[in-house]
Nucleic acid binder design. Structure first.
Lengths: 227, 227
DNA sequence: TCTATATTGATAGTAATACTATCTTTTATA
DNA sequence: TATAAAAGATAGTATTACTATCAATATAGA
């Protein structure tokens, strides 16, 4: 049995739905590869078109501009991650186990569960670490937010906040703690690889220290009595 | 008595030292104003030159490109902030008081202590919230890091980690906790203003909720027994 | 199967951006 | 007052970020 995951994306994220054509899928696939390779700043629709084997105009038919495309793939990532969280924590009743699973999913590179044909979830995870916050750190946040472009991110955050409250219903900052965990799952990994003196992690290659730090922090916060 | 604060900047941050000429100071001053107004993406040396009353070439004599300029003002900010921390926590022996002061300095808009002639610390603080992480979230991090461009940031982080250890010498992740506090002081404020559902803060205008959240988190982590 | 429609390809063009180069004038300084 | 350093003025280039147009092709419905 082969199951393919289809994520329904907000219409405002694109001009033409890239999931509904070969060209569209190639655009997404090569965007991820190119952004991963050269970074978002060096990424242009011209280079993308070359890789894909179409023209600049061809890409512009799908996405207004490269920032929108970045928001698209980020939204896809967050929706996909929330699905992973749902899937992996389904039938688990102990919120401790759930929260540990969530941290693991946030902070570690994925060992593919349900396959998605044209998106490389590992590359995407790496991209979101470096480029993810650029989606909203702009002068246009509020407009983009009104268009619900960040809904998948906010949904995931709300979901995690829920589990936090399940574990400790009296904790006063579940959403802020959730967004902290999400962001730090990325930032601490980035720091580990590129600015290690901002962390306490040696030069270990994997993300186990990041996971340990986040778990330690989360459960200290949730177990500790008010100060 | 008028004291002016001079921050000694790494030579690699600029081509010509902007602190040593009127034009240079104007470039910094108007950069801050323009980036604050339009955001870093829309900021160009041409527009800057117009504001300053010089030419594009004039600006290029001081800074290689706009990214370097951003790193410069960010470095200035972090150096300035570490000075503020030093100054405000001097002669305080209780690490609790010190840590609370640090959080306050990180998260709240400044009420000028020692004046700096041409840098508007309030605008700068706002800029760093939105644009600060863009200084290092690039493909060039490692090179820039080798050039010591992020030293002020790392120094501040190390300083805070020190105070954390003063309070709890057994805590295992002082640097990661410090960088978490620094980043979240900015992100939670940004979220509060632009993506409020990622926080637990109402629509209060000031930063008191952010401060409360960070203090609560920090001291729970440091007071709590190992899990 | 024919035909209307949507999609893609190919090409061209424009305004703005991110620079580099050069030459002249002004300013500081010894 | 001579000299060097800084700033001003101007020009030019390659790339980026688009928009527009028209022909070719695929597809889907009648």
């Amino acid at each position: 049995m082969e199951i393919e995951l289809q994520i329904k994306m907000n219409e405002k994220l694109f001009l033409r739905n890239p999931e509904q054509s070969e060209l569209g899928k190639k655009i997404i696939m090569h965007s991820i590869r190119l952004i991963h390779k050269n970074g978002f700043e060096a990424f242009t629709f011209k280079k993308l078109a070359e890789e894909v084997g179409t023209t600049e105009a061809g890409v512009y038919r799908y996405f207004e501009n490269k920032h929108r495309l970045l928001i698209y793939i980020a939204a896809w990532y967050w929706a996909w991650l929330e699905y992973q969280v749902m899937y992996q924590t389904n039938n688990i009743h102990d919120p401790v186990v759930k929260l540990k699973m969530i941290i693991k999913l946030l902070a570690t590179t994925v060992k593919e569960g349900v396959q998605t044909s044209y998106v490389d979830a590992n590359l995407l995870h790496q991209i979101i670490i470096t480029e993810g916050s650029k989606t909203y750190l702009t002068k246009r946040v509020s407009e983009d937010n009104n268009d619900k472009l960040f809904k998948p991110y906010k949904d995931l955050c709300a979901h995690i906040a829920q589990v936090i409250l399940e574990y400790n219903p009296n904790y006063r900052y579940p959403k802020s703690l959730a967004s902290t965990i999400i962001e730090m799952a990325h930032f601490q990994n980035f720091f580990k690889d590129h600015l290690p003196s901002l962390t306490d992690f040696g030069d270990k290659k994997d993300e186990s220290d990041t996971v340990a730090f986040l778990e330690d922090m989360l459960f200290r916060v949730l177990n500790c009595h008010e100060n």
